Computed example of a mutant assay.
Amino acid sequence: MPRHVDHDGRRSRIVKVTMGLLATGGLRAVTIREVARQLGGSVTLVTHYYPTRSAILDDLASQLIEIWRQEVADIDAGTDEPIERLRQYLAWALPTRAEALRREQARIRLLAERESEPSATATFQAFDATMRWDLRRHLEGLVDDESLEFVVDLLRVAVTGVTVLAVEHEGRWTPKKQLQFADQLLVTVGIMEPDSPSP
């Protein structure tokens, strides 16, 4: 009887190893040989699914966006209150959890080296489009239509800035400080009252 192979699970493991290599060593660390070594198999274990490093990176973007969509759907299901849903989304978007920090370390390293990897540009465009769509959706009804795009830009820049600071200064930009910053930003743009509770 032929052995059943979980192809989706194998692809997912390859992408997860790739993300770990990116987070710790950047693009130079990501080779098909090293991914295979980390998985404990031969190069063909990887090339069966991904013939090139670019193919792995393309799928990394697709898989992360799919994971993000599911995680955001789970967050949104937790409350019907729009401001709380926005706060929970921002808490998710910031690197307040170990897995999110590792994901952002990988993303920032890829960003720094994107000139040497043509597929990286498409990856970042997909990430940005997904983040902006989510922000727009979470802001609808909380800001007027005229201000919506400005507030989307403001929150996008703020999340990116805090993320970079959290990666650069992990001990200084603690999860608590990141969440306090996000709440203060929502107060500043008039979405929350100054005396609203912090998470």
Rank of each mutant, 00 (worst) to 15 (best):
V5C: 01
K16T: 06
P95R: 08
H48A: 04
E71A: 13
A158L: 14
Y89P: 03
P2I: 03
L148E: 09
P194Y: 05
V72N: 01
E81T: 07
Q88T: 04
A61Y: 11
H48Q: 12
V43D: 03
P118A: 15
Q38H: 09
Q184C: 02
A158P: 05
A29C: 04
L111W: 15
Q88L: 06
A112Y: 09
F124V: 15
V17E: 01
E146P: 08
R172Q: 14
L111D: 12
T52V: 04
S116P: 00
V164Y: 09
M1R: 07
G78S: 06
L60T: 12
F150Q: 14
T79Q: 06
R114S: 15
V157L: 13
E168L: 15
E168G: 12
Q184W: 05
R132H: 07
T174F: 02
I32P: 02
L142H: 07
A112K: 15
E149D: 15
V159E: 02
S54G: 13
F150I: 11
D58E: 08
Y50T: 07
G141H: 13
P2M: 03
D134E: 14
W133G: 13
V189H: 10
D58A: 08
R132A: 06
R103L: 07
M131R: 15
E149G: 13
E193M: 09
R69P: 03
V151C: 12
A23R: 03
E140C: 09
Y50C: 00
V164A: 13
Q105V: 02
W173V: 15
T44L: 01
R97A: 09
I191S: 10
D195F: 08
P51E: 10
A158Y: 03
L64E: 10
V35M: 00
F181I: 14
I191C: 06
G161N: 15
A129T: 13
I108Q: 13
D183R: 14
R156M: 04
V189G: 08
A23V: 06
D8F: 01
P95G: 11
L148Q: 14
V143Y: 02
V151Q: 09
G9R: 04
D183E: 06
V189E: 13
S116W: 10
S198Q: 06
M192N: 05
I56Q: 01
S198N: 09
R172E: 08
R107G: 09
E84G: 05
L90P: 04
R85E: 09
L21Q: 03
Y50W: 03
W68R: 14
R87F: 07
A73P: 01
L64Y: 11
A158G: 03
V189F: 14
I65H: 09
V164M: 10
S42C: 00
L155Y: 05
S198H: 07
D134R: 15
I67A: 08
Y50S: 05
M192I: 05
L135S: 10
T123H: 15
P51D: 01
A23F: 04
I67R: 14
T31F: 00
F150R: 12
E140D: 12
R37I: 00
F127Q: 09
